[in-house]
Design a protein around this nucleic acid. Structure first.
Length: 653
RNA sequence: GCCGAAUUAGCUCAACUGGUAGAGCAACCGCCUUGUAAGCGGUAGGUUGGGGGUUCAAGUCCCUCAUUCGGCACCA
């Protein structure tokens, strides 16, 4: 007779086999109502599952990540799928999994459908939920299931079963409706909600998109219907608000509004940086230049155009020629550099190095071009022309560990300085298409792993995601509205130095090939600045703000004093603009507030008499009058702290 | 690259089933000398993304190219 152990450690004896319903009901009627599925010894099961043996059981509700996932799964696989089949009987269903915010279903429609079709499908979904039919699991012999789906024309489902491991002789199907009802039935691992009504109504269909069958671009493109689903209307609304917020922060929109950059048809995937955007860029670049200096890097600069033979030797031609730009002159073929590393190897090779000199660290802010597929371009986030905080470390195998540790520590500080404190780590190991012997890969992967483990860092393993020349650690940060961006990278490369002929003289005076570490913290500066814009919603901390202060008078009688004040502040390295237009103060305040200028300085006759200035911070309507010398002191302190003011009112003013 | 959608004044957007392209903001010119998120008046601004076609007539329908957006695939 089963002994059920609950997550809090309590135990319940049952005289006979029990279902998940019974267990939930035995704990409380509220839970019985909220229960969506079970977790039995760590495996998700239907609530109807009968347990006859001892087990650790967790009742899943929409409050659990897993319970919500079951809800979303049922919405996709039972509700959306059924609605689509009822409205489009000729449509063929492929797969319908869950995602972070909801679910999608890939469907092969005989005729393309347009986004206008979504409201009707969604309305049908609501009706299906309201019908509240039960959902039950059935185990079918594999061949019988294949026949069933093939007979119905659902050949994608048949293919899915055929692709399953041969030893699985039964597959599970979920039937909607009472015993044997022929309302809707689909292949699914489950679990599902016990009844459709438990899905609730906090869901929306959000968009349509193309998606390749099985994610392979050689296959047919299906239509993907995206939906979002939440435990409550409130949570749904919160999610929709977050999307609105993300839209408001969109760096493309803010880039235009704040006059930071633009792009135009003639240069797809490349940014034109305007004065303010370039000022922001320079803050980032100069900061990273200082980081290079503090961490033993020497900055270099290599040509943008190099003979293709170099790219053939490095392996890039074989792997990436489709995505490179080329040019030719006097019967020689050149490539526009897609990365800096081969150039850095050329610099390394200009001298014969002793092992005593290693590690040699070279850094560059060189412009790289990659001919990214047109469909992948996205604002500053994915561009064809970019600059990385790119560095290469030439070292011995023994030095890898310490270099990785030092890099990780610096990266944490750098991210914190930019306002990011939540960092995620991934270790990506050997891909299928690669160069180098397995023994070398073993060594490289181990070195990275030990460096992470040694620092007590939790990381996720990403098998098969390494670069063709070596494994890598990927560093991601979480932004102000919870999105994760991969920025930093540390890659071990045992191949390229040898292929490009780099070597050093070891203790025993033999010639050896150095290891090369490819590393970047911000990645593409374009993209990182895009992330910064969205993270801060254009409201940059003082040290990054393109224009830190704007100074204005009440009337044009104060113009000279405003100019003089601006001059004084500029002497202190503050970025100051003046607004001497003949307009009301409130008009100018509004404009500079929309521009998110952090500090607005107003001079009237009162201030001029006492050498004071009235300060208004972005985000606050508090005015504070203080001596100019004190203002300078406070602003300089805020800049060196690199932080946003705790509350706008207490900052600098 | 693939699927779908979009492209109208500097910006944000209108223009019913084909029938004279408009508004707000910005710009420019005046007036106002102004104390913390929009003072008042006036002026100018467009080959409706490019090219082709259908039609008496095209922003609107068709074809094509480009770019952008949402995804997919790719991402050294």
């Amino acid at each position: 007779m089963p002994l059920i152990t609950l997550p809090d450690g309590s135990e319940k004896h049952f005289p006979e086999p029990v279902s998940g319903f019974d267990i939930a009901a035995s704990i409380g009627s509220g839970l019985a109502k909220a229960a969506l599925a079970l977790e039995v010894d760590g495996v998700q099961r239907d609530l109807s599952t009968t347990l006859s043996h001892d087990a650790r059981v967790r009742i899943l509700t929409a409050k659990d990540v897993e319970g919500l996932d079951v809800l979303r799964h049922t919405l996709a696989a039972q509700v959306l799928a059924r609605a689509v089949k009822e409205l489009y009987p000729q449509a063929r269903l492929a797969i319908g999994p869950t995602i972070d915010t909801g679910f999608y279903y890939d469907v092969d429609f005989p005729e393309p459908i347009s986004p206008e079709a979504l409201p009707a499908i969604e309305a049908r979904m609501q009706e299906i939920v309201a019908e509240n039919l039960p959902v039950t699991r059935e185990m079918w012999p594999r061949d019988q299931a294949i026949d069933y789906f093939q007979h119905k024309g659902e050949h994608y489902k048949a293919q899915i079963i055929q692709a399953a491991p041969a030893e699985e002789s039964y597959v599970s199907l979920y039937r909607q409706g009472a015993d044997g009802a022929d309302v809707f039935m689909d292949l699914c691992y489950g679990p599902h909600l016990p009844t459709i009504g438990k899905a609730g109504s906090a869901f929306r269909l959000t968009s349509l998109a193309g998606a390749y069958w099985r994610g392979d671009s050689n296959n047919k493109m299906l239509t993907r219907i995206y939906g979002t689903a939440w435990p409550s209307e409130k949570a749904l609304k919160a999610h929709l608000r977050m999307l609105e917020e993300a839209e408001k922060r969109d760096h493309r929109k803010l880039g235009r509004q704040l006059d930071l950059f633009h792009s135009q048809e003639e240069a797809p995937g490349m940014a034109f940086w305007h004065p303010k955007g370039w000022t922001l860029w320079q803050q980032v670049e100069q900061y990273m230049r200082a980081v290079y200096q503090h961490t033993g890097f020497q900055e270099v600069r290599c040509p943008n155009v190099l003979d293709v033979k170099l790219w053939k030797a490095s392996g890039h031609w074989d792997n990436f020629k489709e995505n490179m730009f080329f040019t030719a002159s006097e019967n020689r073929d050149y490539a526009i550099k897609p990365m800096n590393c081969p150039g850095h190897v050329q610099i390394f090779k200009q001298h014969l190095h002793s092992y005593r000199e290693l590690p040699i660290r070279l850094g560059e802010f060189g412009s790289c071009h990659r001919n990214e597929p047109s469909g992948s371009l996205h604002g500053l986030m994915r561009v064809r022309s970019f600059v990385q905080d790119d560095g290469h470390i030439f070292c011995t195998e023994d030095q890898i560990h310490d270099e990785v540790v030092a890099f990780t520590r610096t990266l944490q500080q750098v991210y914190a300085d930019f306002g990011f404190t939540d960092i995620l780590y991934k270790l990506a190991t050997r891909p299928e298409q690669r160069v180098g012997a397995d023994a070398v890969w073993d060594k490289a992967e181990r070195a990275l792993q030990q460096a992470l483990d040694g620092q007590g860092i939790n990381y996720q393993l990403n098998p098969g995601e390494g670069a063709f020349y070596g494994p890598k650690i990927e560093f991601s940060l979480r932004d102000g509205i919870g999105r994760v961006w991969q920025c930093g990278t540390m890659q071990v490369d045992f191949s390229m130095p040898g292929q490009l002929g780099a070597e050093y003289v070891a203790e025993d005076s033999s010639r050896r090939t150095p290891v090369m570490l490819h590393r970047a913290m911000l990645g593409s500066l374009e993209r990182f600045i895009g992330i910064l814009i969205e993270h801060y919603a254009g409201h940059f901390p003082l040290w990054l703000a393109p224009v830190q202060c704007v100074a204005m008078g009440i009337t044009d009688h104060q113009a000279d004093a405003v100019q003089a004040l601006a001059g004084r502040l500029r002497q202190q390295d503050l970025r100051v603009e003046t607004d001497l237009r003949n307009a009301k103060v409130s008009y100018k305040i509004r404009e500079h507030s929309l521009q998110k200028t952090p500090v607005i300085l107003v001079l009237g006759n009162r201030e001029i008499e006492r050498d004071t200035v009235t300060v208004r911070r972005f985000g606050s309507n508090v005015q504070q009058t203080l001596p100019v010398t004190e203002l300078i002191e406070r602003l300089r302190a805020e800049i060196s702290s690199k932080r946003l003011p705790e509350t706008p009112m207490n900052a600098a003013a």
